[in-house]
């Protein structure tokens, strides 16, 4: 048995697929590709998969990572990648496959490009907002508990261009900041009328800011 890590992009029509739907979808793609994939051995056997960092519905991404296992240690990874490409759909590109280097637990940061589209006049105020000493806001936890958090320690730099801002945000199992929370706090605390923006994940990084591989 061999662990493998598959890298792909999820864009266009695929941004409407929730994470839960994505797991089912990926399992079908893998089955269709007829690679010698490893199944769990429990009562309800299924393709073993582990997604590095779930992506919210509505977001695009050019850097998605899923781990699975191959039964055949000697199976060519090039062959594997080609078969997966053939089994995939438009708007999903499998661009690399390798044996995992880092552990999923090492993920620390992710980069998101927020496209302001026709509301680019808000870029300057947004960057100003991000440059505050602290951004205290309320976050509702999974169990419905509301707690006060500061966003600034969870933001590790940003860059801007004419129509978008790219943010590096805390990511992973220990601490995770969703760009929609940053945007909604921005709207609320700067009295800005909410507008439409689109989000694309650009990269997943480890705790040392190296590309997660």
């Amino acid at each position: 048995m061999k662990n493998v890590r598959l890298f792909y992009s999820k864009t266009g029509r695929l941004k409407f697929i929730s994470h839960l739907d994505m797991t089912r979808f990926m399992s079908r793609i893998i089955t269709r590709s007829k690679i010698p994939v490893w199944y769990t051995e429990g009562f309800n056997q299924h393709v073993y998969m582990n997604f590095a960092l779930p992506l919210s519905l509505g977001f695009e991404s050019v850097y998605e990572v899923v781990d699975f296992r191959l039964n055949d240690d000697g199976y060519s990874l090039d062959e594997c990648l080609q078969r997966l490409k053939d089994a995939a759909v438009a708007d999903m590109d499998f661009f690399a496959i390798s044996e995992p280097i880092a552990s999923v637990k090492d993920i620390g940061w992710a980069e998101y490009r927020i496209d302001f589209e026709e509301n680019s006049e808000n870029i300057k105020p947004f960057c100003g907002f991000l440059s505050r000493e602290s951004i205290i806001c309320e976050k509702t936890g999974k169990k419905g508990k509301v707690k006060q958090i500061d966003l600034i320690p969870k933001i590790n730099g940003f860059t801007e261009d004419q129509s978008s801002v790219t943010l590096r945000l805390a990511a992973g199992t220990e601490d995770n900041l969703n760009p929609s929370l940053v945007m909604s706090v921005f709207f609320e605390q700067t009295n800005t009328e909410p507008f439409f923006y689109s989000v694309k994940r650009i990269a997943i990084l480890d705790k040392n800011l190296k590309i997660f591989k």
């Binding site: 029509r13 695929l14 739907d21 269709r32 759909v89 438009a90």
Partner: peptide, 10 residues
């Protein structure tokens, strides 16, 4: 459920 209207399925 925007997936109802998106199209592009396998």
């Amino acid at each position: 459920k925007p997936g109802r209207y998106s199209g592009g399925e396998i």
